[in-house]
Design a protein around this nucleic acid. Structure first.
Lengths: 195, 195
DNA sequence: TCAAATTAGTGACATACGTCACTTTTTGGC
DNA sequence: GCCAAAAAGTGACGTATGTCACTAATTTGA
């Protein structure tokens, strides 16, 4: 399904964080995307499959999960409204996914194929600029997360997460939060009791 | 000091991982860089200072270190020959550094200012392309590191690190390795004893 | 080349966190 | 609205890893 510019005002705003775009141009850019909808619990990316698309969340919430050989699940990324999500390694290198990406709620996405992304970057230098800036931002955000693993114990990480994303945390189960924090369900449960 | 194309063959090869460049073009690109040399133990970036440059390592070895409020040091990044290094958050957002970046050995760098990087990306679309691809790669590498913190205990992380960078590990002290792995000096010492 | 500083190793002990087993609460489909 | 299934909470206990205090080895610089 093709996206309509009227339904993608937020996406235009998102692009305008880094580049200026007029309405005509935005229409042409949107041509490269399509709309994808998921029901709650539906898989967007299945570990082992090839990953041909990256997605921008219009509405809803997804998680990207790694299942370790011992069966434990670890959450690599959340994506709520305004976030990009895919299995980046698989997408950039046209390789097989190591993560499962699933909808936590009914979700609506803008989907961009690898091919279209490259075409978009050739056709619109400003889109290549956008994706460069975005990648730099993603890198530093992830670096911050890494730093919290190095510097904070799990209770501190939990409290930081609550402070930073209070609304998002209400949309996720404790089990999911624990998998993101790298802590057992039981330990997380004890934090919420204490304070 | 200006770099000469003859002394930067490796840098040309590095760029050619993602873009094709002829010699004349490479000469023009190099104009945007300058050479910087550091003695062992010398600081390249000091926490608290503004960060105006990003660096590519020609020769030598550096570490980027975060000092926590309790005084503990955590290593965010190593950079040996062929690696880019800076305090990314401070550099991209023209903000103050949170990391100290120091030479572990005598080091030679190519230095690129934020201004020149942006100019380079405007003047050479292929350089914007290069930096986009590079940023995507950095992101996925760091994601892998994050995953090892979620899925492996410290001994496994240590062994993985030895497997992946055996030569680099010999150039670093055990103390430095421990600070990278997020484990105490003493615990790391016990691993090396056991096997 | 020697003393001082830094790094590395080690034992005893403390603690944060995981695991297991179980109970209680909440959620979702019919 | 009811019942099964999932999520959340909890106590007992084990273990990996940190901390402290000390010794041994190595590096550095005057």
């Amino acid at each position: 399904m093709k996206p309509t510019s009227s339904s993608c005002i937020d996406f235009k705003k998102h692009l305008e964080r880094f580049v200026e775009i007029d309405d005509a141009e935005f229409e042409r850019i949107l041509e490269y995307f399509s709309v994808k909808k998921l029901k709650k619990h539906q898989l967007l990316v299945r570990a082992g499959d090839k990953v041909h698309h990256t997605y921008w969340t219009v509405k809803g919430l997804l998680t990207s999960t790694f299942t370790a050989p011992d069966g434990k699940e670890h959450i690599i990324q959340f994506a709520d409204e305004g976030c990009w999500i895919t299995d980046q390694n698989a997408f950039y290198h046209q390789a097989k996914a190591t993560f499962n990406i699933a909808a936590v709620e009914d979700t609506e996405l803008l989907s961009l194929s690898f091919e279209n992304r490259e075409k978009l970057c050739v056709a619109f230098h400003k889109m290549e600029h956008f994706f460069r800036k975005k990648a730099n931002d993603s890198f530093t955000k992830q670096q911050k997360r890494l730093l919290t693993y190095l510097t904070s114990d799990s209770q501190q990480r939990f409290e930081l997460l609550l402070q930073e994303y209070p609304k998002l945390m209400q949309r996720l189960s404790k089990k999911t939060l624990a998998a993101y924090l790298g802590v057992s369900r039981e330990t997380l449960s004890r934090f919420t009791k204490k304070g």
